[in-house]
Computed example of a mutant assay.
Amino acid sequence: MDNSYTFGDVTVTEQEVAQHMVAAVKTIFSTMIFIDDIVEDYPLEKPVSHFHCSISGMVGLGGAFSGMVGVHLPEDFAQEATASMLGMTVEEVDAESDINDAVGEITNMLAGEVKMLFSDKNLHLCLSTPSIISGKDYTIEVMNNNCAVIVPFYRGEQRFIATLQISAS
């Protein structure tokens, strides 16, 4: 069953948002990170809010609705993506700040793509600067009474997740 979300006169389906996020993530990874073998596995079987040895980038949304775009990557994959993005080997990427900057930029690019989807429907949004959370064990809770579009992706055995949480203002 496909959920729909209504903002004033505009209705957007969860499937439409998920398809846009899939296309955006694949384009970002292909053109900016030079990784072409990303495969989506939508819909997510069960919600994920607890992360182990991961890095999460988040960008807040405000305007027609409030919410958050998130990208949650395992540490090893975040380091690999950073190396590829910067034209380095994985061994050369040792600064946590470089990895955090790369994950923040990936999240920012995805948030920009989400903003375009809604802007094309005359729903205007503003984006916050990216925030990063990382650690061996942490939880990120979904906001109450909201919708969440969660799209898992795989690169080989590595799984990462792109999320959009939205709430009518």
Rank of each mutant, 00 (worst) to 15 (best):
F160A: 00
I55D: 00
F51L: 05
I33Y: 10
L61R: 14
A111Y: 04
A24C: 08
C126G: 05
E16D: 05
V151W: 00
D37V: 05
M88S: 14
G67S: 09
N108A: 07
V22H: 07
L127N: 13
S49H: 13
V114P: 08
F65H: 02
D94W: 03
A24S: 15
V103Q: 01
S97W: 05
T89W: 07
E14M: 14
V17S: 11
Q165G: 07
L125S: 00
S97G: 02
M85Y: 14
A24R: 07
I166C: 05
E96M: 12
G156D: 09
Y5T: 12
T6N: 04
Q165W: 09
R155H: 15
A64L: 07
K26T: 00
F51Q: 05
Y5F: 11
K121I: 04
I33V: 15
L73C: 15
F77H: 01
T31S: 15
S169P: 09
E113T: 06
V39C: 03
Y138V: 02
V71M: 14
N122V: 02
G70E: 10
Q15H: 14
H50I: 11
P74D: 01
K46W: 08
T6I: 05
G87V: 07
S84I: 03
F51E: 07
G62K: 09
E16F: 08
S49T: 08
L123W: 02
M88Q: 15
E105D: 11
Y5A: 06
N144D: 13
A23K: 15
N3D: 06
T27E: 13
K115C: 15
P152V: 01
E113L: 08
D2T: 04
C147P: 04
N145I: 02
R159T: 12
C53F: 06
G87K: 15
D94Y: 03
F34V: 07
S128P: 09
M88R: 11
V25G: 12
D120L: 05
A95G: 10
